[in-house]
């Protein structure tokens, strides 16, 4: 008894306890509640239909489509957002020029762009990718700018002292200095992108986890709807765990160690 309860096992034990509690409340609500099990299926039924979805390959197909869209949109946002953020952080005049526009566009939910993106890009992957791009682009620009501005000016003086050229200033000072905050920003914006992909897939495509949920609703299969939700949550959890792990590599770790 003592060995299972020592502090080493607690980080695994406690979450398992919490998940079991949620399952129990769910089961209880189904039994006590006045909904029919077609509207609110019990855990066992959801698990059985999860097995169906896995064995006939549909779940795998939808997961791949969703991950594909997030990957493309997210890489686009990184490729454009981080360089723009670095420019904004280093060049006062560029910041004054573009920052108001960015701050204006930023609070507009990517979902508000759905009508326009469908008209511009038609049906298929493109509008969904565009929405994911929008959802992560602005947070990445803003946090990159902030990270660049907060670099200790002494490091730029060291660069000047050792006669760094412009490329060296970027690769040896700016990028390594902002890497720790960029990792946090990537983690957060990837979370947002994962939120948005589901919404984007409810409108313009015929695959992906969002589509699975919408399609199952139309077929009144709430068990499949809940399956979709569970998979989305599980993948989100995995992505966050993975991004946290990346933050422990040496070139990023110096920041958490010096703080």
């Amino acid at each position: 008894m003592k060995s299972t309860l020592d502090s080493k096992n607690l980080p695994i034990l406690l979450p398992v306890l919490a998940f079991s509690l949620v399952l129990m409340i769910w089961e209880l609500m189904v039994r006590v509640g006045c909904w029919s099990t077609d509207v609110f299926p019990e855990p066992l039924r959801v698990i059985i239909s999860m097995g169906e979805l896995i064995s006939d390959g549909t779940l795998f197909k939808h997961v791949i489509s969703s991950l594909f869209r997030v990957t493309i949109g997210f890489y686009l946002a990184i490729a454009l957002g981080i360089p723009l953020g670095m420019l904004l952080g280093r060049r006062e005049i560029v910041k004054h020029l573009f920052n108001p526009v960015i701050q204006f566009l930023r609070p507009i939910s990517p979902l508000a762009w759905i009508p326009l993106s469908m008209l511009w890009f038609g049906i298929g992957d493109k509008p969904a990718v565009f929405l994911i791009f929008l959802s992560s682009f602005f947070p990445l620009v803003v946090s990159t700018t902030a990270a660049v501005i907060s670099i200790n000016p002494v490091f730029f003086q060291v660069a000047a002292n050792f006669n760094f050229n412009r490329l060296e200033v970027i690769t040896k000072i700016i990028i390594p200095a902002i890497l720790p905050s960029i990792f946090t920003a990537l983690r957060i914006s990837l979370g947002i992108a994962w939120l948005v992909v589901v919404a984007a897939e409810m409108i313009a495509v015929k695959s992906g986890l969002g589509y699975l949920i919408l399609d199952s609703r139309n077929a009144l299969r709430m068990d499949y709807v809940i399956d979709g939700m569970i998979v989305i949550g599980a993948i989100g959890l995995f992505i966050d765990f993975f991004m946290k792990r990346l933050g422990r590599i040496d070139s990023v770790f110096w920041a958490s160690a010096t703080r």
């Binding site: 490091f155 003086q157 000047a160 002292n161 040896k172 000072i173 390594p176 110096w254």
Partner: peptide
């Protein structure tokens, strides 16, 4: 301006912490 011919040793450590 600054030059590699005259190097400045700063008051607080100016080692690049990522190197």
């Amino acid at each position: 301006g600054p030059s590699p011919n005259h190097i400045f040793v700063f008051q607080h450590s100016a080692l690049l912490p990522w190197m």
